[in-house]
Design a protein around this nucleic acid. Structure first.
Length: 172
DNA sequence: GCCAACGTTGGC
DNA sequence: GCCAACGTTGGC
């Protein structure tokens, strides 16, 4: 299984759109960049992706999604007059692809500003200067770091005065 | 709104 | 194939 990061503008599709429709899959149409497209074409069923909010007041990782349908031709490239129409895309060899995802879970927002302070994430593609790719690969160690970032360590003192640490998931 | 960084286009 | 001009992304 591979890991990815996929950007979405919350004004278009936010993590709450997915959370409100838990069983609905989301078609990731509209990618018009070859590098991002190639990453989508290499995605496999069951791969997971960080759902990233971009171009918004607080950019960052808002959730985790799973790939539920592998790459197929993006229908919007053939919609004449549409915003994503590409007249140069051959019908018999479509230029643009899309995948479908579904929500695994929402996470407590891991803000971009905070990601920059986490040493384990220093090499993330998304954090590199000038990076604009809307779909990027994520290293397993980076994934582990982000995936666990909304687990809060709770310290409890018991009667015997020993200290126990529990991992508890923060709601939302 | 600014601007850095990158991708795409098209003339040559 | 080069590269200048232009367009887009996206954080700030």
């Amino acid at each position: 299984m591979k890991y990815w990061l996929m950007k979405s503008e919350p004004s278009e599709v936010s993590i709450d759109h997915l959370a409100e429709r838990p069983n609905q899959t989301v078609d990731w149409w509209g990618v018009r960049n070859y590098a991002a497209r190639n990453f989508m074409r290499s995605m496999k069923l069951g791969d997971r992706a960080l759902f990233y909010h971009s171009s918004c007041p607080e950019p960052g990782v808002a959730g985790i999604v799973e790939i539920v349908k592998e790459a197929y031709p993006d229908p919007t490239q053939f919609e004449a007059g549409g915003e994503y129409y590409d007249p140069k895309s051959p019908k018999d060899d479509p230029r643009w692809s899309t995948v479908e995802v579904k929500l695994v879970r929402k996470v407590k927002l891991l803000a971009l500003a905070d990601m920059r302070t986490i040493p384990a994430l220093a090499d993330m593609v998304i954090l590199r200067k000038g990076n604009r790719l809307s779909v990027t690969p994520v290293e397993p160690a980076e994934w582990k770091q982000v995936e666990g970032s909304d687990k809060q360590a709770v310290t409890t003192k018991h009667r015997d005065n020993r200290i126990y640490r529990l991992e508890s998931r923060i709601p939302e």
